[in-house]
Amino acid sequence: MAQINAYLTFGGKCREAMNFYKESLGGELEFIVIEDSPMAQHFPAELQKSILHASLTKGDLMFMATDMIGPDGIVPGNNVALTITATSEEEMNDFFSALSLGGRVTHALEDFFAGRMGSLVDKFGIYWSVFYDINSGK
């Protein structure tokens, strides 16, 4: 079954914020730092210590975060995105296509080290990321 999770953008304060949430809520916290990821060569030197992806999980509770800011910068409303983790590539494509109708694709669907992903703003101004892990079928 597909899941929807919150994805927060902190623009340089991701580690601090996620550690705060871990202290407040408990759970397991994981970070992927740009310099330690297969994506490192795609980012400038000044971003290498930034958090590419973080996740906090406790039972069924999970939310994710990043330091990566989109082309619009951080404005009210775009620092929180809903992320759909699809159960198949077909489902991912269907979700992405449907949600982008009347909206704006901010990052086309493409493969990267953790799977396949794209981002968009729907016609109501809600930010979405759609993800499918090709390797595990999640």
Rank of each mutant, 00 (worst) to 15 (best):
I74S: 07
A86H: 01
D36G: 05
T66M: 06
Y127I: 03
A108H: 09
T66G: 02
T57F: 02
G73I: 01
A108V: 05
A17S: 14
F95V: 12
F43M: 11
G77F: 07
E110D: 12
M39C: 00
S100K: 04
G73K: 03
E89Y: 08
N79W: 08
S119T: 06
T87G: 15
F63T: 05
Q48F: 00
F95E: 05
S129A: 11
N93E: 14
N135Y: 13
E30S: 14
M117K: 11
D72E: 13
L101D: 11
L47K: 15
N135A: 15
E90K: 15
Y21Q: 09
P71W: 05
F131T: 01
F43Q: 03
G102R: 09
A98S: 14
D111C: 00
V75Y: 07
T83E: 12
E35H: 12
G118C: 07
D111S: 12
G102S: 07
L56P: 00
I126E: 03
L52P: 00
A108D: 13
F20T: 10
T87A: 15
L120M: 09
A86G: 03
S37F: 06
M117Q: 13
W128Y: 08
T87I: 10
L47S: 10
S136F: 08
A86K: 08
A81K: 03
M39A: 10
F43T: 03
D122C: 07
T83S: 15
G77N: 09
E35C: 05
S119I: 01
E91I: 01
N78K: 08
L29A: 07
S119W: 00
Q48V: 03
T106R: 10
G11S: 13
D111N: 13
K123V: 00
A98E: 11
Y127K: 15
F96I: 02
E89Q: 14
L25K: 05
F95C: 11
D133H: 14
F124H: 10
F43V: 02
L47M: 15
P38A: 09
E30V: 11
F63N: 10
M68P: 00
A40P: 05
M92F: 02
G118D: 08
T83V: 12
F10H: 03
L61K: 06
G73H: 08
I34S: 02
L109D: 00
F63M: 11
F112P: 01
S100E: 01
M117E: 05
V75G: 07
R116H: 10
M62A: 12
H42T: 12
G12Y: 03
Q41C: 10
F43P: 01
V130Q: 05
L29M: 08
T57S: 14
L56G: 04
K49R: 09
S50L: 07
M18E: 04
P71A: 15
W128C: 05
A114G: 03
L101Y: 04
S97I: 08
A54K: 02
S129E: 13
G12E: 04
F31D: 02
G118Y: 05
K13H: 14
A114E: 09
F124L: 07
G11P: 02
K58L: 12
H42W: 09
G12H: 04
N19Y: 04
H107K: 13
L99A: 02
S136R: 13
F131Q: 08
V75L: 10
G70K: 02
V130D: 01
A40L: 11
K13T: 12
I34C: 08
S100T: 03
L101C: 10
K58H: 11
G73R: 06
L52T: 04
L61C: 09
E16K: 13
M62R: 15
F20K: 07
L82A: 10
